[in-house]
Amino acid sequence: MASRRDANGRTLSSRTLSAAVDALPGDHPSVSHAAIAKLAKGSQDNPTVGTILALCEALGGVPPAHLLPHESYGDLRALEAFEDPKARRVLALLNDLPPDEIQNVIADLEQRREDLGLEPVPDNEASARGKPQRRRSMDDAAQYAADSLEGL
């Protein structure tokens, strides 16, 4: 939700996202703003597949993997690229190459992008290394949020 904006450029709230799910065409589950808030805080960790797909569609078609609770799934641009079968084919071709050969392929692709006048792709791995570590694990934060809501 933090990476998506509404029509006015504001970050989506659980209420606006719930309304966006309800406004989706076709048959889909309704998702309350309370359920969305619990998912966002981590106090509800087992949504149905239908709920995930509805949220992804309401968020503008983000890949379902983007909603997984792991820091390496935060690269929305890469996850969107992975939806393309050709991108998955490229990954399959890279799968068994030695690490130094993969670096050569990356350098070649970066040079091709530059030659074509395309924007460089940010190195999310390098920026992720510079992020400070969280003080609480995701489970601890979820438990803390649940306890706070229950007044414990």
Rank of each mutant, 00 (worst) to 15 (best):
M1C: 09
A2R: 10
A2P: 00
R5L: 13
A7T: 15
N8H: 14
N8E: 15
G9I: 08
G9C: 11
R10F: 14
L12M: 12
R15H: 07
L17K: 03
L17D: 01
S18M: 06
S18I: 02
A20V: 03
D22P: 01
L24I: 07
P25R: 10
P25V: 15
G26S: 08
H28E: 04
H28C: 07
P29F: 11
S30D: 06
S30F: 07
S30P: 00
I36M: 06
K38Y: 04
L39I: 04
L39S: 04
A40G: 00
G42L: 09
S43R: 05
Q44G: 01
P47Y: 09
G50R: 09
T51K: 03
T51F: 03
T51Q: 05
L53A: 05
A54S: 06
A54G: 03
A54E: 00
L55D: 03
L55K: 01
E57N: 03
L59Q: 06
G61S: 09
G61A: 09
G61Y: 04
P63H: 02
P63N: 00
P64Q: 03
P64W: 02
P64E: 02
A65Q: 10
A65I: 11
L67M: 01
P69M: 09
P69S: 12
P69R: 15
S72H: 14
S72W: 11
D75P: 02
L76K: 04
L76E: 15
L76G: 02
R77C: 00
A78V: 10
A78R: 05
A78F: 14
L79R: 02
E80Q: 11
E80Y: 02
F82P: 01
F82L: 10
E83P: 01
D84Q: 11
D84A: 13
K86L: 11
K86I: 05
R88G: 08
R88Q: 11
R89F: 04
R89M: 08
R89P: 03
R89Q: 11
V90R: 01
L91M: 12
L91P: 00
L94R: 00
D96P: 14
L97A: 11
L97H: 11
P98H: 14
P99W: 03
P99C: 01
P99K: 03
E101D: 14
I102H: 03
N104K: 14
V105P: 00
V105M: 06
Q111K: 15
Q111E: 13
R112G: 01
R112L: 14
R113N: 09
D115G: 10
L116A: 15
G117E: 11
G117L: 15
G117S: 13
P120C: 07
P120A: 13
P122G: 07
P122R: 09
D123R: 05
D123S: 08
N124H: 12
N124L: 10
A126K: 09
A128M: 10
A128S: 11
K131F: 04
P132C: 05
Q133F: 04
R134D: 09
S137E: 01
M138Y: 08
D139L: 13
D139I: 06
A141W: 09
Q143S: 01
A145Y: 13
A146M: 08
D147M: 14
D147H: 12
D147C: 08
S148I: 00
S148Q: 10
S148L: 14
S148P: 02
E150C: 11
G151H: 06
